[in-house]
């Protein structure tokens, strides 16, 4: 088949393209993944029993806010990474805001605590469970985000995989925060971020294998 024949073949009866399809694809992935994470959380872990009192505590909202902001900046980065020729730059910088904010809060909390209490603020009572649970709750969104990314055209597959994983980790952490009773900023600054970083690292490794086109 010569190139003119290929051009004729591709052009013949080509379906018109619907605008905004990639945004809808990621929205679908996020909604489906998060809904599955909520079901998993309710079935395996349950809501924290003191949720009613917790909503009055600013720290509860910080704990939701950090993954929510990571989710938003991850989504923006994924949309750009999926479109050839779009620059990613500013989307990755927004990512640093929630991380810097929670580290600042953690530093303040550690500075104002007596030295003997500091290690307990970081370790909490559930650090291992936190990281593992976020990973498990991230799994549905991880699969869904890779599906959404697969429908686009990532020219940097490792980075696209990393941000798809970050998106999934952030969704997992957001849902896990509804179960987790820990309220210390140093705990969140350590284990929540580690829990979110896990899927991002896995995504960076899987991207080059799964996101080729």
């Amino acid at each position: 088949m010569d190139t003119d024949q290929l051009v004729a073949m591709l052009a013949r009866d080509a379906e018109p393209v619907t605008r905004g399809a990639s945004g809808r694809r990621f929205a679908t992935a996020l909604v489906a993944g998060s809904a599955a994470a909520v079901v998993l959380m309710l079935a395996l872990l349950g809501l924290r029993p003191d949720l009613r009192e917790a909503v009055g505590d600013a720290m509860f909202w910080v704990k939701l806010g950090v993954p929510a902001l990571l989710l938003a900046s991850g989504l923006a980065a994924c949309m750009r990474l999926g479109h050839p020729g779009s620059r990613v730059g500013s989307a990755t910088l927004v990512l640093l805001l929630p991380i810097a904010a929670i580290w600042l809060l953690a530093a303040l909390a550690l500075a104002s605590a007596p030295p003997s209490a500091r290690i307990a603020l970081v370790l909490g009572d559930s650090s291992a469970a936190c990281v593992a649970s976020i990973a498990i709750l991230a799994a549905p969104t991880f699969a869904a985000a890779f599906w959404a990314m697969k429908g686009l055209a990532p020219t940097r597959p490792a980075l696209a995989g990393a941000f798809s994983g970050l998106l999934a980790g952030a969704a997992g952490a957001l849902v896990y925060a509804l179960h987790c009773p820990e309220m210390a900023a140093p705990f969140i600054a350590t284990w929540y971020l580690l829990g979110i970083a896990g899927p991002a690292v896995v995504g960076a490794l899987l991207g080059p294998l799964l996101l080729r086109w």
Binding site: V17, L152, A153
Partner: peptide, 21 residues
């Protein structure tokens, strides 16, 4: 991948990224 072209974007950047990939 023609659905990933955003009409507000320079065509060169899009085609070039695909060709380079």
């Amino acid at each position: 991948q023609r659905h990933t072209y955003d009409p507000g974007q320079p065509l060169t950047a899009w085609v070039h990224a695909i060709a380079r990939y």
